[in-house]
């Protein structure tokens, strides 16, 4: 009787499987109970606060940042995503030439979000933003200048 036993046993396992899928289907069709889809633009995406979206530079309300142009992040970066163009500018108050960033260039397209630059930054000038809306039609848009135009170093960071 193993022939018929095979058939019946086989059909039983099939029904067991159908029970599992059915147990999801019927609640779903009634009130979408187990649906895991999130309809993105309407329902906002859940982004954790530590999410490494892109590197940004913090600016205060006076358009001042904390980057001294020490290039620690540029050295720490494994693949050259960060380039810093700096200059020595004469500080009028002290009369000394001070290293100041001209442009803090960040290639988001190359960045692998490894966190090394942020770990390396001695002044906490750069940090993670959770923004992930970065898709563009042109790759060149992914090269960003992190310091805002006209911004300058916050007083008291140099020490």
């Amino acid at each position: 009787m193993s022939y018929l036993g095979d058939v019946i046993g086989g059909v039983k396992t099939l029904i067991k499987g159908m029970k599992v899928t059915g147990s999801y289907f019927f609640p779903n069709i009634i009130n979408q109970k187990y649906i895991i889809t999130r309809q993105y633009p309407e329902e906002p995406a859940i982004v954790m606060d530590r999410f490494k979206g892109e590197v940004v530079m913090w600016h205060n309300e006076n358009n001042e940042h904390r980057c001294t142009g020490c290039q620690a992040c540029e050295i720490a970066c494994p693949n050259g995503s960060i380039e810093i163009i700096w200059d020595r500018v004469l500080n009028e108050e002290t009369g000394k030439k001070v290293k100041t960033i001209d442009k803090h260039i960040y290639h988001l397209g190359m960045c692998t979000m490894c966190n090394l630059c942020i770990q390396a930054c001695p002044t906490n000038a750069i940090m993670w933003s959770t923004n992930f809306h970065n898709s563009t039609y042109d790759r060149s848009n992914l090269t960003k200048v992190l310091n805002k135009p006209g911004s300058k170093l916050m007083a008291g960071v140099e020490e």
Partner: peptide, 9 residues
């Protein structure tokens, strides 16, 4: 297990 492992196929 019910869905896949036990399935006769």
């Amino acid at each position: 297990d019910e869905l896949l492992t036990g399935n006769v196929i």
